[in-house]
Design a protein around this nucleic acid. Structure first.
Lengths: 202, 202
DNA sequence: AATAAAAATAAGTTATCAATCACTTTCAGG
DNA sequence: CCTGAAAGTGATTGATAACTTATTTTTATT
């Protein structure tokens, strides 16, 4: 929670607006996040928001850009160390879950975007994120296949869709039970199951 | 698509309203489905909707009840035949995917509900659906464990969350690519992978 | 200390949408 | 074929939320 200081320089105000929106999303549905509430959270008038963003959806775009950058940074860092691909993949899995647990508003925002049918600017950013994330997972799966950790009969495409699904299953459980920490607790066992599905049988 | 007939008896008008809403949800985000659009789809005035539903959210409640009843009917029927539990589970998986492909608005409506934080009447219905569905999957997993198809070291809880996640992974892919038929095509391979994760190794 | 530029505000406007109500049209039963 | 009940409509209302504009407050520079 950023402190509510008035008369911030523009770039800091933009950052603060993004954070305020994320904080609101942690406890409210995105559709009921109004510019008035965002402003109130920063201790400002509603009109002030439009000093820094030309439209409301410009706010959502900046929020999504922040989310994409931050999540990719976290998982890339997690993926970095060491040769055993399946361990790196586990680190990615856990980093992703930890990120969502830390910013519980993020899945809500993403789900809101998935409802849109026509392509919006925000959706474009989501698409890029999903693509980059998918490439990271696919490269780890490929590495695991070459090192003989992963059964070579497994399709990388199917496995990476399953990987994402495993995360989603946890997220949905967390959202439904209104307890995002349940995700963190169940994550290791869930990954172990995923691992079993692609591991070379002995 | 129901034919647009005026002066329907009340119970048929209610059914028609539910169907019209589902059809709209297939091509629009739930937030932009207004009572005016629902009415227009049936060739009626906006005011007419309120002859049959006291509020707009009463419409969503009825829609969700219909979805819950219909989906459970489909998957229960799929689960019915035969002893090999893992085959019954596959039938459930495919039935679920087929249902979503047939009513592409359904995941959008569900995702919209998942964003709500405070418990709404619609959310209550979703909760019941998820519980009933979870029980069905759990009972099949239990049966498979007893028949020796499933490794007894696997937690039913974790496996059923993974099952749901596998479906979700497909749904998200379908929504993002704006092509729900991709789900149907990828479903068998995805289930095969899930099966590998719980099957007894030989 | 003076002042210009930047940040924030108060008080609007406009559009949209759920919900209401007085009134009209249609249908079904005697 | 008549009539009362049920189904539907047009016009309106009140609330809400994004966006605008004229004005004020603060900050930074010289």
């Amino acid at each position: 929670m950023t402190k509510a200081t008035k008369y911030l320089p523009a770039y800091k105000r933009r950052q603060a607006t993004v954070q305020a929106t994320l904080e609101l999303a942690a406890k409210h549905a995105p559709t009921e996040i109004t510019t008035a509430k965002i402003a109130a959270r920063m201790g400002m008038s509603q009109a002030a928001v439009f000093r820094h963003f030309s439209t409301k959806s410009a706010v959502w775009e900046e929020v999504m850009r922040w989310v994409a950058r931050e999540l990719m940074e976290q998982v890339q860092q997690a993926a970095a160390p060491g040769p055993p691909a399946l361990n790196a993949l586990e680190a990615v899995f856990l980093a992703h879950v930890a990120f969502v647990a830390q910013y519980p508003g993020v899945p809500r925002i993403l789900f809101a975007e998935l409802q849109q049918v026509s392509p919006t600017p925000v959706r474009e950013i989501v698409w890029e994120l999903v693509r980059d994330y998918g490439l990271l997972v696919a490269s780890l799966l490929e590495r695991g296949r070459q090192s003989g950790e992963i059964d070579s009969s497994i399709s990388t495409e199917t496995a990476s869709s399953m990987f994402l699904g495993a995360v989603q299953g946890l997220i949905i459980k967390g959202l439904l039970s209104c307890d995002m920490d349940i995700m963190t607790r169940s994550a290791p066992a869930t990954y172990a199951l995923f691992r079993r599905s692609i591991e070379l049988k002995q």
